[in-house]
């Protein structure tokens, strides 16, 4: 299905289950098409389709075990989908056509894709033996081929951008959780990604420290970064996301403009979830 063929609903409320969200561009930056993901023979995501427009901020919410993280991780093939296709700017990624058959792409092709997609993990996954600035420099040098001096300059700029210029030479263990997560965001941004993925970026943090991370993310959104955020922070989802996608049991149950989904959820499952996680 191309954007033009999409039902009129998409430009209006756009909240029928499984439906793609608001469409601002003829070609979505990211398109997930009929993605299924299995874990040891157990299917955790069932034929999910999702389009993300350039500049859009999508919050993926839902109960644990809904398949949110799996879906997010399949965008950069940390999880390889059992079926379905991932398109970045209209190009299918992760698989290549060989003799008429679709086979998994080799490491080089995957790396090319991953360079364009930044990822922030729940547990930061900073390199503990490197300082903050070295963490941000490493992939710039070895993945993008930037010179050491250029990488350092860019790293310091990104660290300053997340408010951590003074921590450039600190090892992660010397930083608070919130600072570590901001270093991780700087590390991803230094790669000039077209899209940023956040996998429960504040779940491992005290609420207080989570706020500094959310503030950084909010600014990133304001600057026009395309973002997909798996989160349990409902305030953040409502205020920062353009669209909320609610998943349960491996499927998209409901999606639409953030405020609308939060305040007037249509599906029973969504209502139950929101009632449980918010005190509305």
């Amino acid at each position: 299905m191309t954007a033009g063929e999409r039902p009129a609903d998409a430009s209006g409320t756009g909240r029928r289950a499984g439906e793609a969200g608001p469409d601002r561009s003829p070609v979505p930056l990211l398109r997930l098409e009929n993605i299924s993901i299995s874990y040891r023979g157990h299917e955790v995501v069932h034929e999910v389709s999702l389009d993300v427009s350039p500049g859009e901020v999508v919050a993926l919410i839902g109960p644990s075990g809904a398949g949110k993280s799996s879906l997010l991780r399949c965008v950069n093939f940390l999880e390889v989908p059992a079926a379905g296709t991932v398109y970045l700017e209209g190009r299918p990624v992760g698989f290549v056509q060989r003799r008429g058959r679709s086979v998994p792409a080799n490491a080089t092709a995957l790396a090319e894709h991953r360079r364009e997609v930044g990822m922030v993990f729940q547990n930061f996954n900073l390199f503990p033996h490197l300082t903050a600035v070295e963490n941000v420099m490493l992939a710039q040098i070895h993945s993008l081929g930037r010179s050491k001096a250029d990488a350092r300059e860019r790293a310091l700029k990104e660290l300053a951008h997340v408010g951590l210029a003074s921590h450039a030479d600190a090892k992660p263990a010397k930083c608070s959780g919130g600072q570590q997560q901001r270093i991780a965001i700087a590390r991803a941004l230094a790669m000039d990604p077209k899209l940023m993925l956040f996998d429960e970026p504040t779940s491992a943090l005290d609420p207080e420290l989570g706020i500094e991370v959310l503030t950084t993310m909010r600014r990133l959104a304001d600057e026009g970064m395309t973002m997909i955020v798996v989160t349990h922070e409902m305030h953040f989802a409502e205020e920062v996301a353009d669209r909320i996608v609610f998943m349960a049991d491996g499927r998209i149950v409901e999606q639409g403009p953030a405020r609308q989904v939060m305040r007037e959820p249509v599906h029973e499952r969504t209502k139950r979830f929101l009632a449980a996680v918010t005190d509305r």
Binding site: N76, E112, R114, V117, G118, F121, N125, A139, S143, A188
Partner: peptide, 8 residues
């Protein structure tokens, strides 16, 4: 995973 995600 971090190394992979950074295309290292």
């Amino acid at each position: 995973e971090a190394a992979k995600a950074l295309a290292l």
